[in-house]
Design a protein around this nucleic acid. Structure first.
Lengths: 258, 258
DNA sequence: ACCAATTTGTCCGTATGTATG
DNA sequence: TCATACATACGGACAAATTGG
């Protein structure tokens, strides 16, 4: 240790690429740059920040990954609007890596779906009700095509959250929604009573929402979810097993431009 | 259009940096690379992938942003464990950009906290109960230091979710938890009755959890949250206003090594 | 506590493919 | 069709920080 008085704090400059990312992020979150607007070319950013191309690009990659900037069809940079699906896939990945169990997923779905359906009963509009009805009709028509049924079922639950008009709940639901994917398909395949019961439940819940009866809607949603759980156990699965990596599809690979 | 028979599909290679990111991500999510393990130096990756170092670095930045790889104290790359706080800040940012209202946040918190406290009542261990008690004691001692009280209150609600033993709910709560930050401080400052009521509620809920009485726990949690809402309205705030950017702290800037 | 080797952060210059007008 | 602008990718370079003897 030196004898010189220690008057100054340590200067710890963030790496340039982080400063670039932070600066751009701040412009976006502060609202000075609005979604859809062009960010400018890499060369322009190089000029503004006075750093090298490579440095700018590293910073851009981070923002790109976060969804704050996107590249349009011509690879030009535009300000993006981080949407839920993007976050959802990350949440899903985190949950799988943390080896969350089916029970945790189911219990969370119970809490969220019951809450959402209550609010939906208070707040549903004719439009959202029509969407719910249409979905059920399509589900009835899809009998036999289990993959399609599962797809529609997931969509129906999503519509309930949409009817609830709460985007925070909607975001919270995403990971719990993945409950429905492969396991549900298995259940429908193997348990004959599953599909009619599912359709009946969707009908009753939708009607309860239409009647603005939160208690009734809640009750039937509860039965519906317990039905799923019974089906899950019926096909010989263990609720306390971690969800598998089957649920994971590479996210980085999906970032390709379309 | 040419007359040559079109036998081949278009080859659309993903950019090299994405392939790098995807390849490493796959190794991690498949479990072949486990959290904490070193990923190897940039030079090593350059060799393995046969691409330029800049390219590797761009790929790394994406994984770094996603939390799948980290840099340790010496900036070497190690496999990371995407933790919830990281996702939470991302979710928060998305919600602010989407101009979510206080009402949505409050209603989501209602659904989540009520669900969590019920499960906590079924499942709390002596350890988590002790943590809840300790938190309340500290809250009582902190009276007057509103910032500290808010911090402890947020922590207490987090403990309820921890007691519920459901990581999906825990993750879902994060954005709703930010409800408590600046607004709560204002409420405590201006509404004299707020702190004693908060402490009383925390006591009663904790006791209900201890008694394994989900209904009682739920009831008091409901009152507790309605109290917050009354306080919010009392200080003249509008529930239907979007949450502000005050809630946003730059995430990129927080990525600095500590 | 010093030195040598390694590794990261940053930069420069250049070549190539592709989208747009 | 052609020219231009731009993103992608490469190779090489050097300073600063870190590690390990």
């Amino acid at each position: 240790m030196s004898d010189i008085a220690e008057k100054f704090e340590r200067i710890n400059p963030a790496p340039a690429y982080l400063q670039v990312a932070a600066a751009i992020e701040k412009e976006i979150t502060s609202g000075r740059l609005r979604p859809g607007e062009p960010l400018g070319t890499e060369a322009a950013l190089v000029k503004q920040f006075g750093v090298n191309r490579s440095t700018v690009r590293e910073g851009i990659r981070m923002l790109e990954q976060a969804g704050l900037v996107q590249r349009d069809s011509s690879r030009r940079l535009t300000i993006g609007f981080p949407h839920y699906e993007r976050l959802a896939s990350r949440m899903t990945r985190a949950l799988v890596l943390h080896e969350v169990t089916f029970r945790e997923l189911w219990e969370a779905a119970l809490v969220l779906d019951l809450g959402a359906v209550e609010q939906a009963a208070l707040r549903a509009t004719p439009e959202t009700l029509a969407e719910l009805d249409a979905n059920i009709a399509r589900t009835e028509a899809a009998a036999g095509d289990w993959t399609a049924v599962v797809e529609l079922d997931t969509q129906w639950h999503g519509l309930v959250f949409k009817a609830a008009g709460n985007r925070v709940l909607q975001l919270a639901r995403e990971p719990a929604g993945l409950l429905n994917l492969p396991a549900t398909e298995l259940i429908l395949e193997r348990v004959t009573a599953a599909l009619p019961r599912l359709i009946d439940a969707h009908h009753r819940i939708t009607d309860a929402i239409r009647k603005r009866d939160p208690a009734e809607a809640r009750l039937w949603m509860k039965r519906h979810l317990h039905d799923w759980r019974r089906g899950f156990e019926r096909i010989g699965k263990d609720l306390d097993r971690p969800i598998d990596q089957v649920y994971l599809q590479s996210t980085a690979a999906n970032e390709r431009r379309r």
